[in-house]
Write a protein that binds this DNA or RNA. Structure first.
Length: 851
RNA sequence: GCCCGGAUGGUGAAAUCGGCAGACACAGCGGACUUAAAAUCCGCAGACCCGAAAAGGUCGUGGGGGUUCAAGUCCCCCUCCGGGCACCA
C-alpha cells in the first residue's frame, strides 16, 4: 500500500481528459530542492558577528560515521533542525553545524574484515552519510564541517595534550587499568559499564597493570560537581548521574598503627582508614583492608596460608566480575592474626582482610563499626566480632542495631567525647586527629583521572617521545612546531595485542627533541572521547591553521544555547567536555565555564515495543522511509509520534498518515495560491478562520519556547487544516475575503517550515513568494484576533457533568451562575433540594452542590 | 538495595495552573464517488447496562486509601515496567 502513495502521483498513467490538480509528490519535490540547496552553501550559514541579531548556537551531537544514519539519528536531527529553523524565523543569527566523530575502533575492524584502510573506509562512510543528511533536508552549515580523523583537526588534540602536559594535567603512571580483550585496548572507567566494555556488552573487562597516560580530571572534581547546581538548563537526570559519578564524599583519614610484635616485620607500619563517621570511632572493633592492600601483602609474605587465602579472594572477585555480579557476592574475610591500635582510645583491634573492601576507593582500608554500619554489622555477626554501641538518640539510649542516624544523635561511651552531637563531633574529632598527627579531614571522590591511552591505530598519536640517552622513563614532549604528528597511512592492522603503531619503524623511530639522539615515539593513541570533548569549539573557526580556534569567535558563540543528543552520553562525553571547557578556560582560550547552557536528551526510537537491533529484525532504515514516504514525512512523523523526550514507537502507518496530511495541505495551498491581499469586508467566517489561525500560531510559538511538545504543535496545525477544509465551501462561495485566505495560506506554510523543509520550499515558490521560507519572519500571533467571543462552560451538579452552556466570553461570575441555574437540566436536578453552594470558576465551569 | 522516569481506549498519544478525560493521528467499521478497486471525501467509534431507536444510566486514567465542591493532575501506601548507580566505608 505505501508504495502507491508515491507511484500514483508520479504521473506515470496517461494524462486524464479533464484537468487534474497537481498532487503532492515528495519524490518529485525533494530531489529538486536538494540540488538547489547544495548549489547554495550560504543558505544555512551563520551571519557575521556584527549582524545586529542575537546569536543562537543550536547543536546536535555529531554522529560516528558508521556508514549509515539510523532512524534514531533522524529524530535527533529533526528536533535540532526544527529548532534551528524556528530560531532563524525568530530573527536570530543561528549557528547550526555538523561534523564527524571519525576516529575509533570500528574502522579498524572494517579494515580487518574487508581489507579497506581505516581512513578510506571512514571517509567513504562520511560521504554517504552526508548525502543522507542532504536527502533529509537538514539545514547544516557545511562550511564549518569538522572531521576529527583529519590532521587539521587532530593536530589540535596533540596541541592540547602538550598544553596539559605543561600544566601537569597530562601525566603517565603505572596502574591497574581496564582492558577489553575484544578491543585489545585499555578503557577509561567511564567506558566500563557494569564490568563490561561499553562497545561489547558481552565482554568482561579485565584488570591489567600498565603504564598509561592520564588526564587530571580530578583536579576539577569539585568544580564539575558544584557547577551542576547552577545548570538549570540540563535535565535533572543527567545532573544526578554526573553527581553520582563524581561521588564526592567528605570524611576523615585516621591512621591505625600496626601493633608492635617481637621481631615483627610490620612494626611501625600504619594503616590509614577512610571514614565518613569518625564520630563512631570508639565503636571500631576491627580494621578491614582490601586483599590488594600493601599491608595484606606484607602479612602474606611471612604467612603462606594467608597468602593463599588472599589469592583466592582476588580470584573470587574476578569470577564475580565475570558473572556480572560484583555486588552480589557474600561478604567474607580472614583474620590476619595481627592487631592495630585505635589512636583515639589506644584499643588494640584485630586486622582482617575482607573481600568487600575496594582497593581503589578511599585508602583501601576501613575501621569496622558494626553497631552503626549495616555492612560492618553483617560482617561482625558472621565472624563473631565485637559490636559496641557508641551513638544513640538523646531520648532513646538503645535503638535497634545497626543504627546509623547522625542528625539527632549523640555520642555515648566515647571517652571525653561522650555527650557530643554526632555532626559536631565529626568536625572536632577530625581536627583533633590532625592536631595529633594521626589523621586529617579528607574528601574522596569516586571519579578517577581519565585514562586516555589506547593501544589502537585509528586515533590521535600522542605527541611524546622517549629517548634512551635522556632516560627511557621520562617522556619528552614533541615541540609544537613539529605538529601534527601524522598517523602513518599504510599500516597492517592485526588483532594481536600491542599498539599497531609500534610495528611501523618509520613512525616509531625519531630523534630526541632535547638531545638530538635516537628516540622512539609513544605508540599509543588517544581515546576518541578526546576528539568529541572540544569539537564544538572548532565549528566556530573550522579552518584555522594557527590555533584550535580564535578566542573571539568562540566567545561570540559560546556557550551553546541548545545541545541535543542521547542520554547515553550523560557521563562519558558530557563530563569530559565539561572538563575540557574548564581546562581551555584556564588556558585563557575561552571565557565560559560550561559548554552548554541547555541540554536536551531525546528518547529512543523503538519498534514493536523493543529497541531496534539486527538480531530482532526490527530495524527501520531512513533511506527506505525516504524512498517510500519522503524525508519530510519521516521527519515530521518522528516529531508527531510523541513528545521528544520520551521513547517513540515507530509506526509506518503513522508515516503514511503524515503523507496524507501533507497531501491535504498541498491541495489547499495550491488551490488558493492565486488569492491575493486587498482589503475587503470581514464576514463571520473570516473572523472564525482568523481566530483559529492565530490560536494555532500562538500554540506553536509557545511550544518552541516551552516543552518542545511538537506532537501537539503538529496536531494543532492538523486541526487548523481541518477547519479550513470545513470552510472550503464557504470560501468557494465567496463568503470569505481573499485577503484572509491569502494570509492564512501563507502563514500555514510558514508554520510548517520548521518541520517539513522540502514541502514548504515547494509551496512557498507556488505562492510566488521570494527567498527561503525559513528566513522569513515568523508570523506574530494576534491575541485580539485569537480571542473567542463566545465560550462554553460545563455545568456540574455535585461534581457530575450535566450540561454545557454557551455564554459571551466576558460574562462575569453572576451572569455565569444565573445562566447555569436557569438551565433546564440543572433545574430538574436541583428543584426540591437544598443548594449548599454554587462554585463558579469564571471561564472554566460551574458546580452546583445540593443536598 | 539506592536514585531517576513511566503506567490513560484496539494503538501512538492529549489534557502546560486541581475544573467537560481520551484532542490529533493510526488501525477499524459504515457511507459517498467508481463497472470495480485504489486514491479522495463524509460519518461512527472508552467499557458496560437499558432500549427497536432516540434518549438515559453506571463504571472508567496500574491498585488501595486520603484531601477537595471538583483529582489523570495534590498527599500517603503498594504493584508492575524502563533507565541509571551499586559492597563507595
Amino acid at each position: 500500500m505505501p508504495d502507491e502513495i508515491l507511484m500514483s502521483s508520479n504521473g506515470a498513467a496517461p494524462a486524464p481528459e479533464t484537468e487534474q490538480p497537481e498532487r503532492y509528490s515528495p519524490a518529485a519535490i525533494e530531489p529538486k530542492w536538494q540540488e538547489r540547496w547544495n548549489a547554495d552553501p550560504s543558505l544555512y550559514a551563520a551571519e557575521p558577528h556584527d549582524c545586529g541579531k542575537p546569536k543562537f548556537y543550536c547543536l546536535e551531537m555529531l554522529p560516528y560515521p558508521s556508514g549509515a544514519l539510523h532512524i534514531g539519528h533522524v529524530r535527533n536531527y529533526a528536533i535540532g533542525d526544527a529548532l534551528a529553523r524556528f530560531m532563524w524565523m525568530r530573527g536570530y543569527n543561528v549557528l547550526h553545524p555538523m561534523g564527524w566523530d571519525a576516529f575509533g575502533l570500528p574502522a579498524e575492524n572494517a579494515a580487518l574484515k574487508n581489507n579497506i584502510p581505516p581512513r578510506e573506509w571512514t571517509l567513504s562512510n562520511i560521504a554517504s552519510m552526508k548525502k543522507q543528511f542532504q536527502r533529509l533536508g537538514m539545514g547544516f552549515d557545511w562550511s564549518t564541517e569538522v572531521t576529527t580523523c583529519l590532521p587539521d583537526y587532530y593536530r589540535w588534540n596533540q596541541w592540547f595534550f602538550l598544553k596539559m602536559f605543561e600544566q601537569g594535567l597530562a601525566y603517565r603512571k603505572k596502574s591497574k587499568v581496564n582492558w577489553c580483550p575484544q578491543c585489545a585496548t585499555v578503557l577509561a572507567n567511564e567506558q566500563v559499564i557494569g564490568g563490561r566494555c561499553w562497545r561489547h556488552e558481552e565482554t568482561i573487562v579485565e584488570q591489567r597493570d600498565l603504564t598509561q597516560w592520564f588526564l587530571r580530571i580530578t583536579k576539577y572534581a569539585d568544580e564539575l560537581l558544584d557547577g551542576l547546581d547552577t545548570m538549570d538548563g540540563w535535565p535533572d537526570k543527567v545532573r544526578t548521574m554526573q553527581r553520582n559519578w563524581i561521588g564526592r564524599s567528605e570524611g576523615t583519614i585516621v591512621d591505625f598503627m600496626v601493633a608492635n610484635e617481637p621481631g615483627g616485620a610490620t612494626n611501625g607500619t600504619k594503616i590509614s582508614v577512610f571514614t565518613t563517621r569518625v564520630d563512631t570511632i570508639f565503636g571500631a572493633t576491627s580494621v578491614q583492608v582490601a586483599p590488594e592492600h600493601a599491608v595484606a601483602k606484607a602479612f602474606a609474605a611471612t604467612d603462606s596460608v594467608l597468602a593463599g587465602q588472599i589469592d583466592e579472594m582476588i580470584a573470587q572477585q574476578v569470577a564475580a566480575r565475570e558473572a556480572g555480579d560484583v555486588g552480589g557476592i557474600e561478604k567474607h574475610g580472614v583474620a590476619t592474626g595481627h592487631f592495630a591500635v585505635n589512636p583515639f582510645n589506644g584499643e588494640r583491634v584485630p586486622i582482617w582482610i575482607a573481600n568487600y573492601i575496594l582497593a581503589d576507593y578511599g585508602t583501601g582500608a576501613i575501621m569496622s563499626v558494626p553497631a552503626h554500619d549495616e555492612r560492618d554489622f553483617e560482617f561482625a555477626t558472621k565472624y563473631g566480632l565485637g559490636i559496641k554501641r557508641v551513638v544513640a538518640p538523646v531520648d532513646e539510649p538503645e535503638p535497634e542495631l545497626p543504627y546509623g542516624a547522625e542528625d539527632d544523635a549523640v555520642l555515648i561511651d566515647s571517652g571525653e567525647w561522650t555527650g557530643e552531637a554526632c555532626l559536631e563531633a565529626q568536625q572536632r574529632m577530625a581536627a583533633f586527629a590532625k592536631a595529633g598527627g594521626f589523621g586529617s579531614p579528607t574528601i574522596t571522590y569516586r571519579l578517577k583521572d581519565w585514562g586516555v591511552s589506547r593501544q589502537r591505530y585509528w586515533g590521535t598519536p600522542i605527541p611524546m617521545v622517549y629517548c634512551m640517552a635522556c632516560g627511557e622513563d621520562t617522556p619528552i614532549p614533541v615541540p609544537e612546531a613539529a605538529l601534527p604528528i601524522l598517523l602513518p597511512e599504510s599500516i597492517e592492522i592485526t588483532q594481536e595485542g600491542g599498539s599497531p603503531l609500534g610495528k611501523v619503524p618509520a613512525f616509531v623511530n625519531t630523534t630526541c627533541p632535547r638531545c638530538g639522539g635516537p628516540a622512539r615515539r609513544e605508540t599509543d593513541t588517544m581515546d576518541t572521547f578526546v576528539d568529541s570533548s572540544w569539537y564544538f569549539y572548532r565549528y566556530t573557526d573550522a579552518q584555522n591553521d594557527k590555533a584550535p580556534f580564535d578566542s573571539e569567535k568562540a566567545n561570540y558563540w559560546f556557550p551553546i544555547d541548545q545541545y541535543i543528543g542521547g542520554v547515553e552520553h550523560a557521563i562519558l562525553h558530557l563530563i569530559y567536555s565539561r572538563f575540557w571547557t574548564k581546562v581551555m578556560r584556564d588556558l585563557g582560550l575561552i571565557a565560559n565555564d560550561e559548554p552548554a547552557a541547555r541540554l536536551f536528551t531525546q528518547g529512543m526510537v523503538i519498534k514493536d515495543g523493543a529497541k531496534m537491533s539486527k538480531s530482532r529484525g526490527n530495524v527501520v532504515s531512513p533511506d527506505d522511509m525516504i524512498d517510500r514516504y519522503g524525508a519530510d514525512a519521516a521527519r515530521m512523523y518522528s516529531l508527531f509520534g510523541g513528545p521528544p523526550d520520551r521513547d517513540l514507537e515507530w509506526s509506518e502507518e503513522g508515516v503514511a498518515g503524515i503523507v496524507r496530511f501533507l497531501g491535504k495541505v498541498f491541495r489547499i495551498v495550491t488551490k488558493y495560491a492565486g488569492f491575493t491581499g486587498g482589503a475587503s469586508a470581514k464576514t463571520a467566517d473570516d473572523e472564525f478562520l482568523l481566530r483559529k489561525y492565530h490560536q494555532t500560531l500562538a500554540k506553536i510559538t509557545q511550544d518552541f519556547s516551552g516543552r518542545w511538545h511538537f506532537n501537539t504543535s503538529i496536531s494543532s496545525i492538523m486541526i487548523l487544516v481541518n477547519e479550513i477544509t470545513a470552510k472550503e465551501a464557504a470560501i468557494d462561495a465567496g463568503q470569505v475575503s481573499d485577503s484572509t485566505v491569502a494570509e492564512i495560506i501563507k502563514g500555514l506554510v510558514q508554520m510548517l517550515a520548521p518541520f517539513a523543509p522540502f514541502f514548504v520550499a515547494e509551496l512557498w515558490e507556488k505562492l510566488g513568494q521570494p527567498g527561503a521560507v525559513f528566513r522569513t519572519p515568523w508570523p506574530e500571533a494576534d491575541e485580539e484576533l485569537a480571542r473567542e467571543s463566545e465560550i462554553e462552560i460545563p455545568v456540574q451538579v455535585n461534581g457530575k457533568l450535566v450540561t454545557v452552556i454557551k455564554l459571551a466570553a466576558e460574562s462575569d461570575s453572576d451572569a455565569v451562575k444565573a445562566a447555569a441555574m436557569v438551565d433546564e437540566k440543572v433545574a430538574s436536578r436541583t428543584t426540591g433540594k437544598a443548594i449548599v453552594k454554587v462554585v463558579v470558576v469564571p471561564g472554566k465551569l460551574v458546580n452546583v452542590v445540593v443536598k
